[in-house]
């Protein structure tokens, strides 16, 4: 602790000027901590790069990701195809760039769904309290009492293989964390005086919840979603790898690795290149997520 201590005797005579309490908003904290953390900046740069690639894929990709050219199959990296070609002669670089697009979009949808369910259930539980709160939270705990990945696998298997079903199944096991978080936030915000004020001027429950409580709960939710993005990308890739996610000929990275696995003895790049692409994407999001963790952790805040 670096608080300056005043000798006890002095206090009676000259009271020291009241120590100025430095209050910083979450964003100010974020900015301060970011400037000191080169890895976080690297993370933002990496993620920015991936997002830019995903958005501008049609302009950035040198080839059509779906164009089959059997005479060019399994070419090693270099030459006309910067990162080589797969077993159908498709350009791996272009497929990876489009792969960013598919993964990011799918992961964002999963997290949006998880947030939505979380807000509905967690908001209801926190606002109403009592028996309903108890029931909803027990239900949430039940989902948390089981390894989510395995449950997602089972649901995806039951729904049948497709990217939409993979998204649904991951969202179906992901929401409990968000419901918990929102409930806690709602419980805290509900205490505020302005909620009583809103009630006293006759605002209805829905209005109070939607207009006054939820907007004040949203920031931590977004932070959690950022931190989860990398994991969700990987889980979706896992499902695709098992054949439960994106279907051919979509350039989904997990599925591309599964195909490349057939050639791993001799044409190592077919599986390696899409793997590196997932790695770059996940590392970027995880670095950003880790930076957030530091920002939120009061122990790492400098006084």
């Amino acid at each position: 602790m670096s608080t300056r201590e005043t000798p006890a005797g002095e206090i009676a005579h000259i009271a020291p000027p009241p120590k100025k309490v430095v209050q910083r908003s979450l964003w100010q904290n974020a900015w301060r901590s970011l400037r000191r953390n080169p890895l976080a900046i690297a993370g933002f740069a990496l993620l920015g790069f991936v997002i830019a690639m995903a958005i501008f894929a049609p302009w950035v990709a040198p080839h059509d990701p779906l164009e089959v050219k059997l005479e060019d199959k399994l070419l090693p990296p270099g030459g006309q195809y910067l990162l080589g070609t797969d077993d159908m002669g498709r350009d791996l670089l272009s497929r990876c760039i489009y792969g960013f697009r598919i993964s990011l979009r799918a992961a964002t949808v999963v997290l949006a769904l998880a947030c939505l369910i979380g807000i509905c259930l967690g908001g209801t539980a926190g606002y109403l309290g009592g028996k309903i709160d108890n029931l909803l939270m027990r239900m949430t705990d039940m989902f948390l009492a089981f390894p989510g990945y395995i449950l997602a696998l089972a649901i995806a298997g039951a729904l049948g293989p497709s990217m939409t079903n993979a998204i649904i199944s991951v969202a179906a096991v992901w929401w409990p964390w968000y419901a918990r978080l929102i409930r806690g936030q709602v419980l805290a915000v509900r205490q505020n005086l302005y909620i009583d004020a809103a009630r006293s001027i006759g605002a209805g429950h829905i209005r109070i919840l939607v207009r006054h409580i939820l907007p004040n709960c949203i920031t931590p939710l977004l932070v959690l979603a950022t931190m989860d993005l990398g994991i969700v990308i990987l889980v979706l890739a896992n499902l695709s790898f098992l054949g439960l996610g994106a279907q051919p000929p979509e350039p989904e990275l997990g599925y591309m690795i599964a195909r490349g696995r057939l050639y791993f003895m001799n044409q190592w790049w077919v599986a390696t290149v899409p793997g590196v692409a997932i790695f770059i994407m996940a590392l970027g999001t995880n670095l950003v997520g880790d930076a957030w963790r530091d920002i939120l952790d009061p122990r790492t805040q400098s006084r």
Partner: peptide, 26 residues
């Protein structure tokens, strides 16, 4: 150490398996 740790969680598990198989087996 942060890079090492975060790299670990950023790789799809099946890809790690495949890479290790390529390197140490094949």
């Amino acid at each position: 150490s942060r890079i090492i740790a975060l790299s670990g969680v950023s790789m799809p598990i099946f890809w790690v398996a495949l890479l290790l198989q390529i390197i140490f087996f094949s």
